[in-house]
């Protein structure tokens, strides 16, 4: 029996194996994804993002238990950074994911970024597809959270929860970081710490200032204490509300369609880039070109145009 056949029989090992297959981009992974893509329905994909130390893992853990209590099956992807020096990674998110039911109900997978910088690994959205194809009702994705802006999450999820803590700065910083744009639900976690009320007030007035369509979704700001399980029910409710809201007004479909479009463009871009560079590699000496530019005989803009004219216009 092939691994894929076992996968169709809901074998957990097969699921794990296929995730690795996709993650490692092994020979034939695109074909396999194509196969699975047909099975993807419209399950809920939730992203949890925020700076380091925001308590994302704890929130994920709490939310998983809420979904399970409602009879849902959940798959979680937790992304951690790959060390740029060694290429290795220390994936520690499982530490906070104890006492989960069997994998058929809750499946948890750690991923390393392997060089990607947008908060997810390059393969994260594909793996969400695999999980959904396997039959999980909900896919929860936790971003790296190393501080930089992690925008990939919007293209991988339907509902994005941005998590901040009182010490992660003021509302202005949050706005500059683009967090307001990507969030569907805002959480101030560790709200028992000093400064939380201030931050909430600031965020509220910042949101208020933004011009918003009155019919649009109003971003809720929720003060939680993940460790003490405080206000998690409210967070859970708001996530479901956002889901229902976007499904009812067509926003959900529009967003998914947008994601599909981006995905196609992405696939094309990667494909063209790879092919074009491969073609160039055989025929052009980059060393020579760099020399020319470095010593002022040429400039990069002209070189780009010339190369494209010579090799790209097929």
């Amino acid at each position: 029996m092939t691994v894929l056949e076992k996968f169709y029989q809901r074998d957990i090992r097969a699921l794990s194996r296929i995730i690795s297959f996709v993650e490692n981009r092994e020979e034939g992974y695109r074909q396999l994804l194509g196969e699975l893509y047909r099975m993807v329905g419209h399950g809920l994909r939730i992203g949890i993002t925020g700076p380091p130390g925001a308590g994302k893992s704890t929130l994920v853990n709490r939310l998983v238990h809420r979904f399970v209590a409602d009879g849902k099956t959940v798959a979680v992807i937790a992304v951690d950074p790959t060390s740029p020096f060694s290429g290795g990674a220390l994936l520690g998110d499982r530490v906070r994911m104890q006492e989960f039911p069997a994998a058929e109900q809750v499946y948890f997978r750690s991923m390393a970024t392997r060089g990607a910088t947008g908060g997810l690994a390059a393969a994260t959205d594909n793996i969400a597809v695999v999980m959904e194809a396997f039959g999980y009702d909900v896919v929860l994705i936790e971003t790296v959270g190393v501080g930089q802006v992690e925008l990939d999450i919007i293209d991988a999820c339907d509902t994005v929860v941005v998590t901040l803590v009182p010490e992660s700065g003021d509302a202005v910083q949050a706005m500059k970081a683009g967090l307001m744009e990507i969030s569907d639900v805002m959480v101030i976690n560790k709200a028992d710490r000093p400064g939380s009320e201030n931050l909430i007030d600031e965020l509220k007035s910042a949101l208020h200032l933004q011009k918003r369509d009155p019919d649009a979704w109003q971003i809720p700001i929720i003060a939680t204490e993940g460790i003490n399980d405080k206000n998690i029910d409210l967070l859970y409710e708001k996530i479901l509300e956002h889901d229902a809201f976007t499904r009812n007004n067509g926003r959900f479909d529009a967003h998914r369609r947008e994601q599909i479009k981006k995905k196609i463009i992405n696939i094309l871009r990667n494909r063209f880039q790879r092919e074009f560079l491969d073609t160039l590699a055989g025929q052009v000496s980059f060393e020579q070109i760099v020399d020319d530019i470095y010593y002022g005989r040429q400039n990069p803009f002209q070189v780009g145009e010339d190369l494209y004219d010579a090799f790209g216009r097929k």
Partner: peptide, 14 residues
């Protein structure tokens, strides 16, 4: 009443 504690994930960020 209080829940149980698991080591913070930050503890692993070496």
């Amino acid at each position: 009443v209080w829940g149980v504690w698991e080591e913070s994930q930050g503890a692993m960020r070496v």
